[in-house]
């Protein structure tokens, strides 16, 4: 991760994926998009989950949709027409997914074309990948410069994340970086939930964020005001930290499991080992 200011025409395309559904990809994408925008970056978030669109709801933009990604790809609208400006940030845009079609409506090449057109005018392009390892995931992966893998500290989510990482490596998109979402400190302490150390032990990926379980996420998602805008939320702060790490800042991890050994380990990862 480099720290220098990116010049025009050099947006970073970051795909957020997970394999398993329901681990918080869309929530993570929305919150990272908003965090990056609040840090002064020009950001587009793209919902690649054609047929099951959600990102617009979490970002509170559902009622503004006129055109969507499939309209752009099939030539019914210009890219600019499908980009919905966020209510609060002038430099944050959403390109929504179509709700009436499926993943086959677009191809990986379409995604590359769309992102290439956007690269010039933005700093970050975040792509919310659908769950699964099929076409939808391929669409989201193809244009990626890097990949963030969201997982929960549970065996099935970690297994699917591992599978995804294998596919990402095979596509030569690097191993990716890991966001561990919904960590319940209390359960980890009692030994009932995988710790971030356990997750690292299996996946062996650099961890770019650990997001604690936080009830505020749910109400925030339902109200369309992502939690990262809430200064009182631990999860919101953690997403903000991830955004700053994406920008290359060296942000220490919040001490969530009260275990200094884990903390040191992550810091070492970010020193480039």
């Amino acid at each position: 991760m480099e720290n220098e200011e990116r010049s025009r025409g050099d947006a970073r395309v970051i795909t957020v994926s997970s394999g398993k559904g329901g681990v918080g990809k869309t929530t993570a994408t929305a919150n990272l998009g908003i965090s990056l925008a609040s840090l002064g970056k020009r950001v587009v978030v793209i919902d690649a989950d054609i047929g099951l669109r959600n990102l617009d709801i979490i970002m509170g933009l559902e009622n503004r949709i006129v055109y969507d990604l499939v309209d752009v790809v099939e030539g019914r609208s210009k890219l600019r027409q499908a980009m919905i400006k966020h209510k609060k940030f002038d430099d944050l845009f959403l390109i929504p997914a179509a709700q009436t079609r499926d993943k086959m409506a677009i191809s990986p090449e379409d995604m590359v074309r769309v992102t290439d057109e956007l690269r010039e005018d933005f700093d970050y392009i975040l792509i919310d990948s659908p769950a699964g390892i099929e076409r939808g995931f391929r669409n989201a992966l193809e244009p990626a410069d890097e990949v963030l893998i969201v997982t929960n500290p549970e065996v099935s989510a970690v297994r699917d994340a591992d599978r995804i990482v294998g596919l990402i490596e095979a596509a030569e998109k690097g191993p990716g970086k890991l966001i561990i979402n919904r960590l319940k400190t209390e359960l980890v302490r009692k030994g009932e939930m995988l710790s971030s150390d356990d997750v690292y032990d299996i996946l062996g990926l650099a961890i770019i964020g650990i997001i604690p379980e936080d009830e505020m996420v749910l109400s925030a998602s339902n109200s369309g005001i992502p939690v990262t805008l809430n200064m009182n939320s631990q999860a919101g702060m953690a997403f903000g930290n991830v955004a700053r790490r994406i920008m290359g800042e060296d942000v220490p991890f919040m001490n969530l499991d009260g275990n200094p050994g884990i903390l040191r380990r992550f810091l070492r990862l970010f020193d480039g080992r």
Partner: peptide, 22 residues
């Protein structure tokens, strides 16, 4: 070797790394 990967060999196999679940 990550989940989903399968290795076949008619000889011996050495993995210099982990063999993950799956």
């Amino acid at each position: 070797l990550r989940s989903g990967r399968t290795i076949h060999s008619e000889g011996h196999v050495v993995v210099f790394g982990d063999v993950n679940p799956g």
